[in-house]
Amino acid sequence: MLTESVSATVKLFFREAIARAVSESMRRDDRIILLGQDAGRFGGAYKEFSGLYGEFGPDRVRDTPVAEAAMVGLGVGAAAAGLRPLVSITYMDFLMLGLDPLVNYAAKARFKTGGQITTPIVVKTTAGARGQGVAHSQCIEAWMMAVPGLKVVAPSTPADACGLLKSALTDSGPVLFVDHKRLFSTAGEVPLAESFVPIGEALVRRTGTHVTITAHSYMTRIALTAAEHLAEEGVSCEIIDLRSLAPMDVETIAQSAGRTGALLTLEEGQLTCGIGAEIAFRIRELVGPIRMARVGALRAPVSSNPVLEAACVPSADRVIGAIRRLLNN
């Protein structure tokens, strides 16, 4: 089980946590509009926008054609002109088509105009492998982390999805909100009261003493599964859910890794120039030489073939093996 800070909560499906964050935000701020393919009447690919069209109407919840460049571009332009658009790009692979306005305009607007223009846009997209093949499975968060001026968040639980999306929709932006196909079948407790999860704060999901594992999004669940198995062997894992990739809460990782003396980074994307590479170097700078290892996808496209997909992306077994090797060296 994922640990949540529990007070008064309600159990929600992941998609419901997103819908709740959007509807609470839209009620509070009439500058927020939603643009997306099938985001309106259909309610989103994962029903994550269910009910919004009915509540807020076609002016604020707009179905768009299949045109990612224009969708992100319109969102960025509208943000620059005073709205707070939430643009839904169904899969992260298609975000590549909309990167020009996000990277070349939104992430640079405040800088290049000397603060005259800000772009409070949130682009929400779904990453990860779940049987859909080479161009519908990718995790390119690390690319996005390399863009100055762009924030990147990636929750692993319904509560964080709700809280981070709400924070993103009040941020000066631009913010990229990344969820995951395999999170939509999950449910979890979400605070009853309106709550925000600050951008830039990691969360220790499980405390431990032998090794620190960093992960985000769906991989946090893989890490937790691996930690449960390793606990039976007497290996105590501390799991840090990054939640926010840019800015990254390096302090929390350093504090943990300094204590355990061993670090395993876990990500579903590529290892080359990956999140693990970034974390490892920054922890090396802050903590000094400790044992480190990284787990990520194989250097190969992710097939829709279930055997090949499972071989490519990290599993709990691969994490367990990597930690055994790390701690035995």
């Binding site: 224009a70 992100v72 319109l74 332009g77 620059a80 002109a81 306005p101 305009y105």
Partner: peptide
């Protein structure tokens, strides 16, 4: 509202500005 040096890059931005004006 400004220049943008990516060829074609300001077109959708301008449409977004228009959307904000329409919305208001």
């Amino acid at each position: 509202f400004g220049a943008h040096a990516v060829v074609g890059g300001n077109l959708a931005i301008a449409a977004g500005v228009a959307l904000a004006l329409q919305q208001r």
